[in-house]
Design a protein around this nucleic acid. Sequence first.
DNA 1: CGCATTTGACCGGCGC
DNA 2: GCGCCGGTCAAATGCG
Length: 569
Amino acid sequence: MMESSYLGKRKPVEAAAAAGFQAVVLRCDAAEENAGARGAVSVRDFFKKAEERKEEEEAPDAGGGGGAQDDRLSIDKDDLTINMGLHVVGRRKSGSEESIVSDGVSSEAGGDHRETKAELKRAKSELERLNEENKQLKNMLGRVTTNYNSLQAQVVTLMQQRSSHRVLAGAPPPGHEQLGVDPAEKSDQHQLPRQFIGFGGTAADEPMRSVGLADAVLRAGDCSASSPSHTDAACMPPPAMDYCTAGGKGKDVMPLPAFDHHSHHRVHEMGSSSEDPPPLHMPQGWLPGKVPKFLPAKGPEPVVPEAATMRKARVSVRARSEAAMISDGCQWRKYGQKMAKGNPCPRAYYRCTMAAGCPVRKQVQRCAEDTTVVITTYEGNHNHPLPPAAMPMASTTAAAASMLLSGSMPSADGSLMAGSNFLARAVLPCSSNVATISASAPFPTVTLDLTQQQPPPPSPEPSQLPAARPAQPPQLFGQKLYDPSRPPAVQAAAADEGAGAAADTVSAAAVIASDPNFPAVLAAAIKSYIGGSSSGSGAGGSSGTTVPPLPASSGGDSGRDDKTREQDS
DNA sequence: CGCATTTGACCGGCGC
DNA sequence: GCGCCGGTCAAATGCG
């Protein structure tokens, strides 16, 4: 009955051929290339961390258990027994441990003092030995750390050189690679179906081939850190979403800024004939199966795993909004709603309906801790041109995703590699409090926290930020955002005022753009779009989708669950 | 009537 | 193997 309305009830083959996946694959490859370079860093980081942990464990021994504190030897020996046991058990079995027992026995039984002294001597010598050992370990650790730092610096330098080389060499004219396919690259990108978090090292082997996301991100990071004049095309953040892939099919594509040309470049430089952007008229459809599966279909086989892994990269945008949903200019269709564990507010699932078969989805959910915060998680890549109103958010999330894919590699233990963080900081030097990368999430997720809005300070580099930024609360596109200074009642009233969707939605891109802390690289992207096209478009209205309000508070229509759902009649 | 939303059911991954 | 949970499907429902 509703088959027609659903974009996705299609055969797997058709769905798998969607352009977005191909783009995802390409981007995945780029990310993996960079991941290769990072892999070494991460591995080193892992060992470094291990060494640090070891040192932390041993440090108390070296300090508190030192020979200078002989009068407290018995106590320190206990500490030693506990702390050192892991590392020098073998030698200490017959040493201090036994001496501890002996001390206790001798003191309690009033035994021979000579024996006690002998025990103390043995303990002393043991401590001295341990101190020596600690010193040696420290020295070793110092050397390892030094080597690690130097190597890390080399990696970063290499990345920067690569990016600068690309800039100097001059990127091919935007969009000119749409038809250009490098067979070598094409083969390369398929020969390593590594997992997204893999440590395969290809970047080091082919430094110039990795003109991918990290490259562009680094380029953007340089821009943000140095020259304000770089806020234009050269510094556009690398698109993690190929918004205009479909344009290659002769579709009516809106004029694209350089950002999207980069996207074209990135897509097509690794594209192949079998990976041409799928025509929009093709039997489109959302993947009938579970998304992460990406059932094998036409095209190169390695596409599937890469697409699947890349598909899982997410960009989460946290924006303080009184509106039900953040409008990003796209058209979304709600296909599900669930109660997420630990959050009284339901999570809504949307998929992009701007083009049939667009694989992009998003989840909208209010923060459990602060219901004024709307968390929008984007996943996937648009396979169609986007309206101007959709560009800001798309570019922002794309840049964030690229940062995630290129600069953050979750480690095996679930934490972020320090090297990765280092790289991320290098990429987004001023975004430490805005963009965070989560490896604890099921999928690699970069979170853009826009809830910490601050009054725009007198910017020393106004050219880097979108012009004419309003003061608090952030308000662009004529849409209201949550204003902490206003009473909730006023907020609610304000949410109701206005016309239709425009009042129900806010533009996260507006928030992003108005955030002075947001990386200039992202702001530059937004600037190019907001300033050019989406001005006055009213991002809320641009979304032709009626958005059901999410429970803005506990008293709202929250609490809908598939199990314990209380129908809000 | 067509379309979008709602919502119960279903499925697969994952942890125990 | 089982249950939990996230995610999706798809029939039912609502709305213009």
